[in-house]
Design a protein around this nucleic acid. Structure first.
Lengths: 225, 225
DNA sequence: GCAAAAGTGTTCGCAGTACACCCATGA
DNA sequence: TCATGGGTGTACTGCGAACACTTTTGC
């Protein structure tokens, strides 16, 4: 039985939530869109395999990544019996610079415009999005999608695009501040407004701990629909 | 590469949270405690494999069961490279009647007194317990561990043993009632008190939906530690 | 009548929500 | 001076938490 790893890679470009997909340049299913994946090597753990695959495609390491689910329907891959262990990753889209269009034709596509993917990859994407919504409602993981310095507006836009709904700016900011998780910087971002918006950073001393604790910046009643 | 499924089976006997473990009557690791598991068959999905294994051991089907995690460290099984997809199940311990002591010497052991298990099974148990705590804090899944008719006291004891801490009975009951998820029956349970405690049932019309929604009977601040 | 568990009620404080205005600045 | 996005403030409401007493009944 074959064991593969597939990666659902999320990115955010200051406006829309995107996925990094590849147009396969090789058989089977050449020229079809798919997630980036690969087989688990004999001396490699699942996490390592996922990191390796992510690095192959993005050149990035040390990125937030988490196991999502194992897909094992006997008919999911028409060729051979394959189990796929799916991971999802959150990357700062600005960091992604790699050109790999020879091996993989990779592109960032908006989550709302995902084409038909091979095998059960659409189902994986859907589950990853649900998990992201679920997890981000309770833990501050969305910061992983932003650069080290970000504005409140960027963060708000990010939350709104993850949940596909508008949030009250004032309440959002208040919750953020009361969490004491972000630190205001001296510099301002001047591109998108005349007044300029302060940059913020994560408080690194608190952040790793808060990842495991319950912090919600959303209206609690709407956490899940 | 081999693909196995292992099952962490939770039960509750009106006092303590327990796991169903087997003492292996076969090699390798004969006479050591382990989770119940087996290899995924060629024409079988992962969920089906898990259900099959659960039924082999308990005789039960249609039980709450959910994929937990895929374990794939290359050294986790000393014999062969094996990926294990772990499921956890919640069963009404009263339903379990099967005698299988010939093939498997199975026993319900308190979660607090789990012996050393083979391979990485202790790690699986630990993760399953964490997941149970996490999930049950947000969704009413613990009902799956109780018989169809139960008393408030049983439910409270169950929550207390899952979280290892005491809960305020009055607030607990109020939250339960406001959830409108349970229906009081006419009969009382007379065994453990003189006054007698009413039986309750789940409102089946609402229950399947609420499984997906956010309902907490715990003090919200303490949801995760 | 007393022990033992069942079951009910109240007060308080804070967190969440809804909602509207002032600020700074470049053009 | 005005348009644009940035950032702050308030009042209300309801839920969650803390806490104690009454009820029932078998012995």
């Amino acid at each position: 039985m074959l064991v593969a790893v597939d990666c659902v890679i999320f990115g955010f470009d200051s406006d829309t939530l995107k996925l990094l997909l590849i147009k396969r340049g090789f058989e089977p299913q050449k020229n079809k869109w798919s997630l980036m994946g690969g087989f688990v090597q004999p001396n490699e753990g699942l996490d390592s395999a996922a990191s390796r695959i992510l690095e192959q495609l993005t050149g990035l390491s040390g990125v937030f990544m988490e196991q999502l689910f194992a897909f094992g329907d006997p008919r999911r891959d028409s060729m051979e019996r394959t189990i796929s262990v799916v991971y999802y990753a959150l990357v700062d889209i600005g960091q992604y610079k790699k050109q790999l269009s020879e091996d993989y034709h990779a592109e960032w596509l908006p989550l709302t415009e995902i084409p038909q993917l091979i095998f059960d990859h659409n189902q994986m994407v859907e589950m990853a999005h649900e998990r992201l919504q679920y997890k981000a409602a309770l833990h501050p993981i969305l910061f992983e999608l932003l650069p080290a310095r970000f504005t409140i507006r960027q963060l708000l836009d990010l939350y709104e695009s993850v949940y596909g709904k508008e949030l009250d700016k004032r309440n959002f900011i208040r919750k953020l501040q009361s969490s004491k998780l972000i630190i205001r910087q001296k510099e301002k971002e001047k591109g998108s407004s005349k007044k300029g918006a302060f940059f913020f950073k994560i408080d690194k001393r608190k952040y790793p701990f808060s990842l495991k604790s319950f912090i919600s910046f959303l209206p609690t009643k709407e956490i899940f629909h």
